[in-house]
Amino acid sequence: MKQKKKWYDFLWIVSLSYLILGFFNILFAWLGLLCFFIPLIIAIAGGNKAYCNKFCGRGQLFSLIGGRFGLSRKKDIPKWLKSAWFRYGFLIFFFVMFFMMLWNTYLVFAGTKDLNTAVTLLWTFRLPWRWAYHGTLFSDGVAQFAFGFYSVMLTSTVLGLFTMVLCKPRSWCVYCPMGTMTQLICKAKHVTSSRKK
């Protein structure tokens, strides 16, 4: 029995387009905030992980490339990768790096620092990305945030692709910071709602 495809089964096209658009104009990176706020809003308001379960385009992209196209060894992930300390530790690490990126953006907004037109891959490698910068109408900080945010998105995609090839297609979902965070929100919500009863 094959389940009929729904509209949201094609959201991988959106995820792929997002990555491609970043090669042409970095300001498109701002759209990535949707992937941050939608899962959080669903988890806070709805108390579920419908975003991961249905709408996550990145997860769909991994299952398409790794599953359908077979670019995955389909082996079990190492035990430490699914352990609680790694999942929560990675979430904290991601948060710290994210706030450092925001701080950097603030410094550019404040005029203390000049705009850096590079995308930082895996928090280490600075890739020159000037070709995707065509100026901004507002402050340089707007572009700095775009470069920073695109770095986060590209880094997580590269990590996800890496574990997709080595392990199972959607291995990224096991340690995805957004997934860990929304699950925590759901847990907290469930605890408070069951106390009320």
């Binding site: 029995m1 389940q3 579920n48 992980k49 249905k54 997860g59 299952s63 979902c173 699950q183 759901c186």
Partner: peptide, 21 residues
């Protein structure tokens, strides 16, 4: 991790994600 991959693949729709947990 409540990712929902199992729910998606189940041909009998026997799996649900309980409260996102």
């Amino acid at each position: 991790a409540a990712c929902g991959c199992c729910m998606k693949i189940c041909p009998k729709r026997a799996i649900t994600i309980h409260k996102g947990i």
